[in-house]
Amino acid sequence: MQSGEIKQLTGIRGVAAAIVMVAHINGDRLPVLKAFAYHNQAVDLFFCLSSFVLCLTYAAGTGAAFPVRKFYVARFARIYPLYAATLLATAVISAIVFGGFATYPQIGQDFVGQLLMINAWPLIGRGVHWDAAAWSVSVEAFCYLAIFPVVFVLSARTAAFSPAVRHALMLAVGAAGAVVGYWWFTAAVSSWALPHDALPATAFWSPVARGATMFAAGWLAYIAYANRDHLAAALQRHADAFVLLVLSLIGLTLAGVLPPWAALPLFAPMLIALMNGDSFAARALSAKPVYRLGVLSYSLYLVHFPVIYALRPIEAKLTPWLYVPTAVGITFAVAVLSYSRLEDPARVMLRDWLNRRPQAV
C-alpha cells in the first residue's frame, strides 16, 4: 500500500469541492463568481481522482491480492456515516422548510433507496436525492462495488499492453465521460426538487456511465504512473505546463469559447503530472490552507445543500452580496463541526470495529 498521504491530491479534491459548494450557493447571484460555474466538471474530477488514489493505496497491478474486507470496511467507514447523517438532516430540514411530506407518495421508496445508496443506479433507482449533491456518492458506491474490483484484477494485464494503447484508452474513456456527462446527463437529469417527479429509470444510466468512465480514466492514469512509462515521465517533467494547459481550457470553457467538456479527457493525465511533488502546482495544492480544504472536502460537499435549504426562509431578505458569503461561512462552520465531531471519529470507530475478528475460543 501507498504509505503517506499525497497532499497535492487532497488539495485538488478540496478545490473541486469548494467550486461545487460555491457554485450551488451562488447560483447566478454574483457574476464575479462565474469561475465557480465549473462545478459539474469538478464532480467528474472526483471520480477520476478517486480511482487513481484507490489504485495507489491498494497497490493495484503489483501482484497484491484484492483485500476485499479491508477495502469495503474502509470505504463504508469513510463515506457512509456522514452520508446517512446529511440524508436525515436534509429530510428534517426539508419537512420544516418545504411544508412536510403529505403529498409525497414515494417518500418511503426514495428514503430507502437513498439509505442504501442505490438511488442513482439505473433501473433500480429513481434518481431522487434529497441532498442534491449526494447523487455522486451513490455513483461512487456503484464504482466501488462494480468497477474497482474489476480494474484491480485487470491492472497487471493492462500494464502489459503497449504504452500507446494504454494512453489512447485513457484519453478515449475520458472523452467518453465527457460525452456522457454533457450530451446526455445534463439534459436527462434536470430537477432535484423535493417532492420529485421522477424521470424514467432508464434516464439514470447516465450518472453511472459518467462516473464509470471517469473512474476508468483515473485507473488508466495510475497504470501509466505506476509503470513509469514515457508519458508519465513527460507529464511529470512538464507538470506545470500541462496544468496550465488544463486551466487554459477551463478558462476558454468559462468564456464560452469551448464546450463544457473540453478539458475532461485531460483530467486523468493531469493527476499523473501532479505526482511531481516539486512542481509549482503540486506545491500550491499542498499548501496548508488548500490541504486543509481537501481534508474538509467531503463534509463541504455533503453539508452545503442542507445549509442552502435551511437558509431558504431568509434568502429573499438578504442581498446577494450578503447571502452568498453568509451561506459560504455557515457551510464552512458546519463542515468543520461535521468533520471533527462526526465524519472523522465515525470513520475511525467503524473501521476499527468492523475490522475486529472474533477471538478464538
Rank of each mutant, 00 (worst) to 15 (best):
A273S: 13
V290M: 03
A241F: 09
R228W: 01
A281D: 05
L266I: 05
L220G: 10
T202Q: 15
A268S: 00
P265D: 04
A263C: 07
R237N: 10
A233T: 11
L266R: 10
A193Y: 04
S279F: 00
P269V: 00
R283N: 15
D197Y: 07
A233K: 13
A198R: 14
K288Y: 02
P265S: 02
P265I: 03
V257D: 02
Y222E: 08
M275L: 13
P200E: 02
S286E: 02
A255C: 01
D278W: 10
I250H: 04
H230Y: 09
T213C: 13
A217S: 15
L285F: 04
S279G: 03
P265E: 00
A221M: 03
S279I: 02
A232G: 13
A212Q: 10
A217T: 07
V290P: 02
A239E: 01
A282S: 15
A217Y: 12
Y222S: 11
A282P: 03
S191H: 10
A233G: 12
A287T: 06
F280V: 15
D197F: 09
V290N: 01
A217C: 06
G251N: 07
S286Y: 06
L274C: 07
A284L: 09
A226S: 14
Q236S: 11
D197K: 13
A287G: 13
V257W: 08
G218C: 14
S248H: 05
A284H: 01
T213R: 07
A216G: 01
S206Y: 00
A201W: 07
P207L: 09
A284S: 14
L249N: 09
D240R: 12
H238Q: 11
P259H: 09
P259Q: 10
R283G: 15
L258G: 10
A209M: 08
G211F: 06
S191W: 05
A239S: 12
L235C: 07
A201V: 12
P259V: 10
A203W: 13
T202S: 14
A224I: 09
W261R: 03
A198F: 14
L274H: 07
G211T: 05
A216D: 00
D278K: 15
G211D: 05
L274F: 05
A217E: 05
A221L: 11
V290H: 01
T213A: 15
D197E: 14
I250R: 09
A224E: 06
H238G: 01
F215N: 06
A203P: 00
P195N: 03
L266E: 12
Y225R: 14
A212F: 01
